[in-house]
Amino acid sequence: MRNGNADDEIIRLASVSFHYEDKHVLDQVNLELFRGDFVGIVGPNGSGKSTLMKLILGLLTPTAGRILLFGQPQERFRDWSKVGYVAQQAAHGAGGFPATVREVVSSGLVGKLGLFRRLKPADREKVAAVVERVGLADKLDKRIGSLSGGQLQRVFIARALVADPELLILDEPTVGVDQESIEQFYELLRSLKDEHKMTMMIVSHDVGMMTQWVNKVACLQHTLHLHSKHEFEHHQEEILQVMYGDTVRVLAHHH
């Protein structure tokens, strides 16, 4: 019998290290995330944020340590449709691909459906519903090349959402997106978290904006420290100073 608490553990990293031949990227990282957590990852360039994401997604293999996804060792984890992913600059260069919004978002269902299974009418409705959810209903059958950067980014979010993931991993999803769309984007994330208890992990360079919306902040600079939002806000100045050094002033947004 597993207790409810263990079922709610979505990610666990136990002493995870990663290094390239001579360069240490991550050192003894421990992290536990539970259902409904919305964690923002903060750290300077080269601190290992993208590496951490790629390790969790299985795109890289840790040099040492263990990763559990939904309670299973990651190397045996097969239920990848539970995990949605929006890559850093996913939209970069994709605009020239001759596909419609509908075709791209539908491709988010391919892994979940499995080989030789076609999209059923219910799946098609799902695709249309998700596209509407990200506010692109009128673009459903438009070629993605005709969209703006912010709209294209929302297409990729819709693609990640269409398979009903329980864990959503977003690597710099707001690069090149205008300020107004960013606010809408975080509103969308918050509603997903509230309605579906979705667990979310987000990397963003826009620390001030991001930390307003998350409930946990993970500070990463080769090692990782997890703070509650309250803790982070309280000690923001010194935490960021330690990580980024004196030379960088971090802009905090106050509304």
Binding site: A94, S107, G108, V110
Partner: peptide, 26 residues
């Protein structure tokens, strides 16, 4: 015809296809 949806997914975004559990190598 049999693997059209997989071919599209892998051609459009190989990394995403891999992460979402598409049998990319196959």
């Amino acid at each position: 015809l049999a693997i059209y949806k997989e071919l599209f997914a892998v051609s459009f975004d190989e990394e995403f296809a891999r992460v979402s559990g598409v049998a990319r190598k196959f």
